[in-house]
Design a protein around this nucleic acid. Sequence first.
DNA 1: GGTCCTTTGAAGGGC
DNA 2: GCCCTTCAAAGGACC
Length: 213
Amino acid sequence: MDRIDLSSARESAIYDQLPPLPFLPTWPEFPTQPQPGGYDGFLSQGAAPYTMAAPITYDELQCQQDTTYPGPSYTLSVLSCRKQKKRRQKEENEIYITKPPNAFMLFMKEQRPNVGPLVRSKGSAAVNAFLGQKWKSLSEQAQAKYYDEAERLRLLHKQQHPEWSNRENYVRMTCSHTSLGFNRRHPTASVCFCVGQKDDHKGQKKGCQKGWR
DNA sequence: GGTCCTTTGAAGGGC
DNA sequence: GCCCTTCAAAGGACC
């Protein structure tokens, strides 16, 4: 596994004191030993041959949320950090604060490595769809662990970024609903500066429009 | 290089 | 209060 040095990143070391996530090593619904086939076996056999993931750490979680995570070097997957690394470079030293993950996102993060090659070969969309089904099949007790952790991370995020709002990461709504919108690049600007473009459900372009900046 | 796909849940704005 | 929209994650596919 590659190692990324994030030691030059910003101040707070609040995550340093957090213990490893206490999740799945004791999860009772699935066998704790690696099973041949992983989720693919689950699909093809209708049973639950399950490849148990090693517990993820807060270091890895924080990498997904904010690659400016302070502290020494962390053992990270280059792939898992690629998008944010690209975005960071794009933002040219400006800090981009991501939304805290919800319960399902934590579940996906943890279980994605367990998905077998058959499902994985169909792409991330298929993997996520499969994990969505898996999520729904979990007991409330099993899901509660993820809801609790998501809530804890949400509060932690709020503590670390008290002024932050989801709205700051929005590309379209802030621009389309007010002439005094703001966005991730210029959160305090008095004019809207469009930074993205997406297709709506009708296949039409939304996002950047003439006169927005 | 940028965007889509695909999921669930959180959050915010409009009415 | 409800509805709609966006974003959080992943990485291959596509333009």
